[in-house]
């Protein structure tokens, strides 16, 4: 799994609430049997017209915005369990997703792939959107070790929560399977009882 420690980057703002997994990657694009290549269909129906021409007004088609951090409205990733949603975001070049609320399964899937989901307060989320509105290149600093997000220009900072086990997985780049495989004996004993 990809390691993550610290990142300073401009952000891509997507100020919409309840972004579901069918928007992130529509079901008709789930037919690949590998994990790669989903990025080109990220937010497919918001990003492209029916004839595959880009919708200029959509933020991913706007060259003003770039960066490795996606910032979205409340209840991001609701809907299906498709891990393809996390793969698509990562494949499109993002390392971090920030929202004021995440759906459970999406959050777990992101963490299992080294994509860091950060939940901030509604107020802090509004501050990030405001900073990006004033300056599209306004950088954000994400520090996993210290569990902080900082709007570099204003110095405003907020701490975020992360399960300590998941944090160490991200920092060291190992995954759940590595962890459980080491306990096979225990599992076999459990099965006997």
């Amino acid at each position: 799994m990809r390691k993550f420690t610290k990142l300073t980057s401009a952000v891509v703002p997507l100020n919409i609430e309840n972004i579901d997994t069918d928007q992130i990657i529509p079901a008709r694009f789930l037919k690949a049997t590998t994990r790669e290549g989903f990025g080109e269909n990220l937010f497919r129906d918001w990003r492209y017209n029916g004839d595959n021409t880009p919708k200029q007004e959509f933020v991913l088609n706007n060259p003003t915005y770039s960066g490795k951090v996606l910032v979205a409205g409340k209840n991001f990733g609701c809907g299906s369990s498709r891990e393809h949603a996390a793969w698509a975001i990562q494949d499109a070049g993002f390392d971090v997703v920030i929202s004021s609320f995440f759906a459970d399964i999406f959050k777990g899937n992101a963490l299992n792939n080294g994509l860091l989901p950060i939940q901030v307060s509604d107020e802090f989320l509004a501050q990030i959107f405001k900073a990006v509105e004033a300056n599209a290149n306004s950088p954000l600093e994400v520090d996993l070790e210290n569990q902080t997000v900082t709007i570099v220009e204003t110095g405003k900072q907020e701490a975020f929560e992360i399960n300590p086990y998941k944090k160490s997985c991200l920092i060291n780049g190992y995954d759940d399977i590595d962890f459980i495989l080491a306990q096979t004996k225990l599992i076999e004993e459990f099965e006997k009882n």
Partner: peptide, 19 residues
């Protein structure tokens, strides 16, 4: 419901890491 990384976990160990 689980994601594909967890499908792999259950394949490999018949267990899940879950809070």
């Amino acid at each position: 419901g689980i994601g594909t990384s967890q499908v792999e976990q259950v394949f490999a160990t018949q267990c899940l890491l879950q809070s």
